[in-house]
Amino acid sequence: MKLNFRKSGSGQPLVILHGLFGSADNWFSIARELEKDFTLYLVDQRNHGDSPQDEEWNYSVMVEDLKELLNDEGLSEVFLMGHSMGGKTAMNFAIEYPDRVKKLIVADISPRYYPVHHQKILEGLNSIKLSEIHSRKDADDQLAQYISIPGIRQFLLKSLGRDRTGFYWKINLPVITENIEEVGKALDEDGKYEGPTLFLAGGNSDYIQQSDLQDILHHFPNYEVEFIDGAGHWLHAEKPAEVIEEVRKFLK
């Protein structure tokens, strides 16, 4: 699949993958700083953003999507970074194609299995009747019945597009809803990437815990972990300066 991406900057290539319900847009503010040091590729994964939609959606095909992008761009080796679902894609890619990844950064996700915990979000998104809304406020009002935190609603509604015929989802909401268990799948037990790997964890997030470190060591023996104080799961949005500092320090 030919993924949509935004390329900017100069230097060694750094590919960044967003998380579930997100898009390349989530990283634009950080990109403005990192593109001073790297050639950045901000990628929309399949069924997200402006990339194509497809019935097949799992880490195996997302890994192959990324490989196709690297091949098309003539990139034999890259720095690779992914957040949440994108971190799982990045980990799987590094294990499958270790010679293509110079260094790996995983933002607030571990290799373990995560039970489904997006039911309320999916329920809220599926409740929005696109044919009946006339503004983003209408969509926000409907979503507020399921999700009380405005910042989360604002993030989710970035995937709500609009053209002359009306509103539409940029995410493939039916396929994501049907296959949501794919997102939490653990890495294969035998999977291993021995290159330099940085795990960035939100200090206020429970996605990476001390109990995960042994599992991380099993899959990524050359790893280090940095906890970003005061950050939750969306650490790149909550503490961008700290994330940029850690990325620069690790990649240089």
Rank of each mutant, 00 (worst) to 15 (best):
S127V: 09
H83Q: 00
S159V: 06
P174W: 01
L104I: 09
L157M: 06
K129V: 11
H134K: 15
K103G: 09
H83N: 01
D108M: 07
G161M: 01
V78E: 01
L156W: 01
Y146F: 13
R136D: 07
T165P: 03
P98F: 14
V101N: 07
R100L: 10
K129M: 09
L173W: 03
R162V: 09
I149Q: 12
T165L: 11
R136P: 05
M81W: 00
Y146A: 01
Q145D: 14
A94E: 08
V101R: 05
G86A: 04
W169N: 02
K102Q: 12
N92C: 13
G151M: 15
A144G: 13
L122G: 13
D138P: 09
I95H: 11
R162N: 11
D141P: 10
A139F: 06
E73Q: 10
V175F: 02
I152R: 03
P115H: 12
A90V: 04
H134F: 13
L75R: 05
A107G: 06
N172L: 04
S110V: 13
D108F: 07
G124E: 04
S148P: 10
K137P: 01
Q142W: 09
L157Y: 05
Y114I: 08
F155P: 05
H118K: 12
L80Y: 10
Y113H: 15
V78S: 03
V106I: 14
P98I: 13
I133W: 08
Q145N: 15
A139M: 07
